[in-house]
Design a protein around this nucleic acid. Structure first.
Lengths: 233, 233
DNA sequence: TTTCCCCTCCCCAGAAATAGCGAGGGCGAG
DNA sequence: CTCGCCCTCGCTATTTCTGGGGAGGGGAAA
């Protein structure tokens, strides 16, 4: 795998990443290699070997919200085999059937990668084969895949500087307190009481936090603070 | 490095991780190897080769809040050399002087690792040597360190299942829609309009979602849905 | 020293969310 | 065929939040 990783490290530009996906696919003789990025604003970016057809359909139907790979990896720390995800819900099964119809393999292995400010990326390999073959293959290349995933992500960020240092406006300590307790379900009165300040003062914090975060209301502000990693609940 | 990683993969129990840190240190002939975890509640956990003295001092003074390694890596995606961090602030310099006094090397390399729910871990190696030697060393072992960091984190999570996110009750599609749009800052009226349902119906979804999530109000429900990965914003 | 941000407090009116009651049809599992 | 869950809609009253004002002190950086 060494030369594959070195090639990837040398890649320049997004087109090169696309080529790298294909090189990885050919090297490992698997069906698909995909890198998928989800922004804290909900924007998506991807590159890989899926058909244009499937990619367009995925975006058009906003499958992001039902794709068990995304949903499952979003809750996980570690790389995961698709078999271990939850495919039981009806939309998930429909999605799965449709994916296979569009050439996505029945087996898959995805590496979640997280960054600051709620940035989330997924590096996936997929293939059509039986369970045993797949288990052997993933076991053999697990380490490679982790390294490739991280290198891939690093490269993708290099070429899209907008995505990386999205230096979000930071919150003052009191603003963080306010957002945190609100995210914990406290009402304004309770938060004010907890922080031993007047409710009016608290409101100023909430408002300034909302302003800094470009949020339309308190719920929005809390959601943004969370997805940017400014507060942890 | 292979045997080191295999040993790590075989490790059982927290004591074994402590031993693994020391094994890694000896293998690479460096001063320190440290794994540091920051919990969603602000709790910390760590293991490694720092002296008890320094570790206690770090915890006692809550250095977490001024440590440039933590602060810097928290804003970063990729592994980073300590030289590239911001040591300019006064507390940071004080901290640095104190760290070196307690045996922490003048050089360091840290791998940030993120999980769902704002979980954050850091795997660090540190050494005392000149810049050039360190640059060569990190360049040569960069890949190893990334893999070791992830394996280390995986092991640490295995032994502390509390830390892994629990599988929570799932939301119905409409509830997910409701939570998602609310997290995007829409008011109830706007969400109802967007979903083309009456505001009252929407309210039923919000309430049932709130009930399922054990949340006290809408903001709380959205926060919980986000931190459990039930919605993606 | 001035400027900027942070923290703290106050009033008021209108908009929005919450809490409680109700109703009916559809669809899948047991 | 129930039972439970999901989706849809109605009303009223109360509580809470939001959006405008305004004021002063402290601390850090320039």
């Amino acid at each position: 795998m060494e030369p594959i990783l070195e090639d990837l490290e040398q890649a320049e530009g997004l087109a090169a990443l696309q080529a790298a996906s294909e090189a990885i696919r050919n090297h490992y003789r698997i069906d698909h290699v995909v890198y998928h990025w989800v922004d804290s604003a909900g924007d998506q970016y991807g590159c890989g070997t899926y058909s244009d057809d499937w990619r367009d359909r995925y975006l058009e139907h906003n499958y992001l919200r039902i794709d068990p790979v995304i949903l499952g990896c979003f809750q996980r720390f570690h790389p995961v085999d698709w078999k271990r995800l939850d495919w039981s819900s009806k939309p998930a099964r429909t999605f799965q059937a449709e994916a296979i119809e569009h050439g996505v393999g029945n087996q898959g292995f995805s590496v979640p990668i997280r960054g600051p400010n709620g940035q989330f990326a997924l590096f996936t390999v997929s293939h059509s084969c039986d369970d045993e073959t797949w288990a052997e293959w993933t076991e053999a290349h697990r380490r490679d895949l982790i390294l490739i995933a991280h290198t891939f992500n690093e490269k993708a960020l290099d070429f899209e500087p907008d995505r990386a240092p999205e230096q979000s406006q930071s919150l003052s300590p009191r603003e963080v307190d306010a957002m945190t307790f609100l995210a914990m379900g406290y009402s304004r009165a309770q938060v004010a009481d907890t922080l031993s300040i007047s409710e009016h003062t608290l409101r100023v914090y909430i408002e300034s936090a909302r302003f800094k975060l470009g949020a339309m209301n308190t719920t929005h502000a809390v959601a943004r603070a969370m997805s940017r990693g400014l507060i942890v609940v």
